Simulated scan of single mutants.
Amino acid sequence: MSPDLDFKHWRKSSYSNTNGGDCVEINLGDEVGEVRDSKAKDAGHLRFSAGAFASFVKAARECRFDG
């Protein structure tokens, strides 16, 4: 585990609704970024290098994942 993420500080997306709908949480460090479903915290998370996470966020902001 990367030392900068030994203390987990998960933040819920500002786009998540308060009615129990889609809830994504992120945990950012200097070297990695992690993503998980806040409704299934024990199911694990995805971990990306800082560069890969930045590319993912950029693509999401550009709506490149819309079908």
Results as ranks from 00 to 15, higher is better:
F48W: 04
W10K: 06
F7A: 12
N19I: 00
N27E: 03
A52V: 12
G44S: 03
G29Y: 03
I26E: 03
A52I: 10
D42K: 15
R36D: 08
S13E: 07
A60W: 14
I26A: 05
D66V: 14
R61N: 15
V24Q: 05
F53L: 03
F65C: 01
S49H: 10
A50D: 07
S2Y: 14
H9I: 01
A43V: 01
T18C: 01
D6K: 15
S38I: 04
E34S: 12
G33M: 00
S55D: 10
G67E: 14
S55W: 02
A54L: 09
D6R: 12
E34D: 06
G21R: 04
G33V: 00
S2L: 04
I26T: 10
D4Q: 02
E25L: 04
F56P: 04
K41G: 10
G20F: 06
G67D: 13
V57Q: 12
E34P: 00
S49C: 08
F65D: 02
V35Q: 10
E62W: 05
T18V: 07
Y15S: 07
D66S: 15
G21H: 02
L46K: 09
N19H: 13
R11H: 11
R11L: 06
A52L: 11
D22Q: 13
V32T: 09
G51M: 04
F56A: 09
R61I: 00
A60I: 11
C63G: 13
L46R: 09
M1F: 04
E34I: 02
Y15G: 04
G67I: 08
R11E: 05
R47T: 15
G33D: 01
F56R: 03
W10Q: 04
D30N: 12
H45V: 00
